[in-house]
Simulated assay, not measured.
Amino acid sequence: METTTEKESLYNHLEQMQVSEILEHINKEDQTVPLAVAKALPQIEKLATATAEKMKEGGRLFYIGAGTSGRLGVVDASECPPTFGVSFDTVVGIIAGGDGAIRKAVEFAEDDAEQAWNDLLRYQINDKDVLVGIAASGTTPYVIGGLRKANTHNITTGCIVCNSGSPVAAEAKYPVEVVTGPEFLTGSTRMKAGTAQKLVLNMLSTCVMIRIGKTKGNKMVDMQLTNNKLVDRGTRMVMNETGLDEETAAALLLKYGSVRKAVENVGN
């Protein structure tokens, strides 16, 4: 299939451009990405709603992808435990070629249509879970194979792609198609397509975590206290919620390990 992500760049002779020109043109293209995401909001809503419903019942969220798409899934998954206090097996990011592919590309890993399901079986994926395939082109065999196999096991499937009418979207019950068009550097989908995928992943995981009760008001009350900055932030949150002084709030926070638990145990 012809994909817009692989179409010729609207710009040429890049090597002849001044640095300011290169930056201006990249920035101009980047500004189109949120508009493309906005068009996909109804699709994102359906996927987020279905995912939240599954996770309320104890299900997990899995991401699969190759290259940049796989790395973005791993990033989003890895940020959920410190941000929302969920366990590390609640949101799982899997990249074609294994964790080593996060830093170094693994040749032809994305072309194996069987491997994604083998990777998912290590986590005992089941019909309580949700699987989201991430693929800028929408043609990655690793992702297509994983979604197809998941469908045969009655697992809720979704995807995040940057072309319309793709094979990946055809396999997903809840497809999200953010059509970002040609890249500034022809075919370099780590640019606009990657930015679009990151925005959608931010929206998906944040929306789901809010819906399953991992926030309060507008605060990350279950965040992990992994550094001094977060301890200070948590202390201020406890102070604002309870009226306690800083020293007492900090002691309570460190004793119970989260803002939510600290506030719930005031006076104990």
Score class of each variant (00 low, 15 high):
E45T: 09
I44R: 08
Q115V: 04
V259N: 06
M209F: 08
G97R: 00
Q16M: 12
K216Y: 14
V143G: 10
P34S: 07
F184S: 03
R233T: 05
V266R: 01
V221R: 00
P167N: 13
A196G: 14
I160P: 06
A48V: 14
T226N: 11
V106H: 13
T90P: 04
G181D: 09
V91T: 12
E247T: 10
A116I: 07
R71C: 13
M17D: 06
E114V: 12
K28Q: 14
I155M: 07
A66P: 07
M55T: 12
A36H: 00
A169M: 15
A169L: 11
T248N: 04
Q43A: 15
A101S: 14
G145N: 09
T180Q: 06
A50Q: 07
S205T: 15
N218P: 00
N240Y: 06
Q18R: 14
I95Q: 13
R148L: 06
V200C: 09
C207S: 15
R103I: 03
V86Y: 06
L41F: 09
L185I: 13
A36F: 04
M209I: 04
R122F: 12
T226F: 01
A48S: 15
P34W: 10
N268T: 09
E6Q: 13
I102E: 07
A113G: 08
I44K: 04
E15H: 14
V221G: 03
Q16Y: 07
A38G: 04
F62R: 08
A66K: 05
P141G: 05
L254V: 03
Q43P: 11
L199P: 01
V106F: 11
T186H: 00
N126V: 03
R122S: 13
T139V: 10
Q197A: 04
E114Y: 13
T157P: 06
A101C: 09
A196S: 11
E2S: 02
K46D: 00
G181F: 05
V143I: 05
C207D: 05
R260M: 03
K56G: 11
M239H: 06
T186N: 00
E114P: 04
K198I: 08
A50H: 08
L199C: 01
D112E: 11
S205A: 08
K219M: 09
I95V: 15
G187W: 01
E57A: 14
I134D: 02
T226H: 09
K261M: 08
R122D: 14
D129P: 03
R211T: 01
M1L: 06
A249S: 15
K198S: 07
A38R: 10
T156F: 13
A38I: 10
K104G: 01
G138P: 01
D129M: 01
T157G: 02
T215S: 11
Q18F: 06
M17S: 05
K214E: 10
K104A: 11
T195P: 07
